[in-house]
């Protein structure tokens, strides 16, 4: 009995975004079907993975996470090189030192770091602020200027600070991360607002503020599935790649931080699976850019992606 394969007739596809410069540029998006349904449409680019690099030494990472970066945690350039060695597709440089409760670094200070990292590694850069909207509106323009023309991905722009960050991306030729909490409509609204400042949609990546496994995975999961089906059904304002900050969410969970015990098993295995499983679920929901922390997670997740990317009937 021949089963007639059901193929959806999608009317639109996700825009393709290029980050970085040839020959090291990374392409994401371009999908014309739901994730990994190769029988139905194209998925020209596999999801890509960036490892996180901080511009100051993290003080609350568990030992299993700092171990692979021993000796480089206080040196963003060396740390970034290490990430490249581990096989990351991109470097995600997080400018935590600018946080007013941390070192309150100035725009010039962080710009210098960004420049140094960009010069040291050839991988495309994602530059993420300190998470304080006001401060990010000050430091990201400086960071964007320091690597002007390098087609990096800057974030995170929110409804409250998107204007200056968008302007920087326009002037210095970067892409932007648009962040909104837990609601597909808010996410779409921000995309529209940024796009209406004349930054092309192909230069916006959507960040649905994912939660870790056990901490609201399902909210972002459904927002992403809705965004992807909306995009494929013709909603241009949602037809852009989605970025998932999986590492930062995973490594603050109890499950990743609790040491070996009988009830929950070994910490290393548990924590790695926590990070990878979180990422793997979001890959199924339509994520294109993943920010992880542990190099082993990177490897495991890449294996999963590779298997998923295999063409099949």
């Amino acid at each position: 009995m021949a089963v007639a394969i059901v193929k959806e007739r999608w009317t639109n596809k996700v825009l393709e975004m290029t980050i970085g410069q040839e020959p090291n540029a990374v392409k994401v998006g371009g999908d014309s079907t739901l994730p990994f349904l190769h029988f139905e449409g194209e998925m020209p680019n596999r999801p890509v993975v960036a490892l996180e690099v901080w511009d100051m030494e993290p003080d609350n990472w568990p030992a299993i996470l700092t171990e692979p970066f021993k000796g480089v945690l206080d040196n963003p350039v060396a740390w970034a090189k290490k990430c490249a060695d581990y096989g990351a597709d991109m470097i995600c440089l997080r400018l935590n030192s600018a946080h007013p409760d941390q070192m309150d670094a100035t725009p010039d200070e962080v710009a210098a770091t960004v420049k140094a990292v960009a010069e040291a590694v050839s991988l495309p850069l994602i530059v993420v602020g300190c998470g304080v909207e006001e401060k990010d509106a000050l430091i990201l323009p400086a960071a964007g200027e320091a690597i002007s023309g390098q087609n990096a991905l800057l974030g995170c722009a929110t409804i409250n600070n998107y204007k200056t960050i968008t302007a920087t991306c326009m002037v210095h030729g970067h892409n932007i991360i648009a962040t909104s909490p837990l609601d597909i409509n808010l996410a779409k609204q921000l995309n529209i607002l940024i796009n209406e400042m004349n930054l092309p949609l192909s230069r916006i990546a959507m960040d649905p503020l994912v939660g870790a496994l056990g901490y609201g995975v399902e909210y972002a999961y459904s927002i992403m599935e809705r965004a992807r089906t909306g995009a494929l059904n013709g909603d241009k304002m949602l037809a852009i790649p989605m970025i998932c900050f999986v590492g930062q969410e995973t490594w603050k969970t109890k499950e990743a931080k609790t040491e070996d015990n009988e009830e929950w098993g070994a910490q290393a295995r548990r924590a790695l699976l926590w990070e990878v499983l979180t990422a793997a679920s979001f890959a199924q929901a339509g994520g294109s850019i993943f920010i992880l922390r542990h190099p082993e997670s990177l490897k495991l997740f890449n294996n999963n992606i590779a298997a998923m990317m295999k063409q099949n009937s």
Partner: peptide, 15 residues
């Protein structure tokens, strides 16, 4: 609630 948030825009999130 979903419709409400999508309508919190001029004129609407779904242009």
């Amino acid at each position: 609630m979903d419709e409400f948030v999508s309508a919190l825009f001029i004129p609407h999130t779904d242009l």
